[in-house]
């Protein structure tokens, strides 16, 4: 499995994602510059990492969606290849329309960084298949615009189609997200956007290993079906 981690100007969790894949899981991972127009041959999965692409100008993720690499990311997703957006990566996925809805400023109006419990809501995706349904994962959040917004029809649809991947535990919603949504899937279930950081929760030494299975699931999902 080869996983491409896209570096946008202002990305700052790209190294962390590469680290978990390469050093913790032994998966081949490499950084791809946002101005490239193609994913390297053999790419099987793509991660849009956390950070502040383009300094969050206009809206988080609003400018990154127009980076040259995004055409190739979209094509990869359309072929069914796994794409994971973490934090700013989720914001980019939502801005680019690969995921529905929109991101708003946290209801506290403040940046929030803390550990939260998120509940696994569906096992039907490459990212969540190695968890138990209802399992609580201990992971950190760190964001200012993490309040997921969806109009009522869309929320109903996400529920009906079992596309909510993770929910914050009741009473532990750090940003006011609709329906406690912490992560959601596209209709093809191969694109996941999530605000919490599983890459910061993949080593016991750092406080939790709960994020590891997500990367293991992603890395083995599409093995051999390279882009």
């Amino acid at each position: 499995m080869r996983i491409a981690v896209v570096t946008f100007p202002g990305s700052n969790c790209d190294e962390d994602a590469v680290h978990v894949l390469r050093n913790v899981l032994g998966v081949a991972a490499f950084k791809v510059w946002h101005r490239d127009t193609q994913l390297p041959a053999g790419t099987e999965g793509v991660i849009l990492p956390g950070g502040f692409s383009y300094g969050d100008a206009l809206r988080s993720g609003a400018l990154a969606r127009f980076s040259p690499i995004m055409g190739a990311v979209r094509a990869h997703a359309e072929k069914g290849g796994p794409v994971l957006g973490i934090c700013n990566g989720m914001q980019i996925l939502v801005e680019s329309g690969l995921l529905p809805g929109a991101m708003l400023q946290n209801s506290s109006r403040k940046f929030v960084c803390r550990w939260v419990g998120i509940q696994v809501e569906t096992l039907h995706s490459p990212f969540t298949r190695f968890y138990q349904k209802g399992q609580i994962l201990n992971v950190p959040v760190a964001h200012h615009e993490g309040c997921y917004y969806a109009p009522p029809e869309l929320l109903a649809q996400l529920k009906a189609e079992d596309r909510i991947a993770f929910r914050y535990q009741a009473g532990d919603n750090p940003n006011g997200a609709a329906d406690d949504i912490a992560g959601l899937l596209n209709p093809g279930r191969n694109v996941l956007g999530m605000m919490p950081h599983p890459e910061r929760a993949s080593e016991g030494l750092l406080g939790s290993e709960d994020g590891k299975a997500l990367f293991v699931g992603m890395a083995s999902a599409w093995a051999g079906r390279a882009a």
């Binding site: 700052n12 969790c13 190294e15 962390d16 680290h19 978990v20 956390g50 403040k110 940046f111 929030v112 960084c113 803390r114 950190p140 760190a142 950081h197 890459e199 910061r200 993949s202 080593e203 030494l205 750092l206």
Partner: peptide, 26 residues
């Protein structure tokens, strides 16, 4: 205060704010 600071980016924070008498980073 410290929840407004990203204390875990770089995947190396072993003792972050409020957890120990000194901060520890790998």
């Amino acid at each position: 205060v410290y929840e407004q600071y990203d204390s875990s980016v770089r995947a190396a924070t072993i003792q972050g704010p409020g957890r120990a008498d000194a901060a520890v980073v790998r």
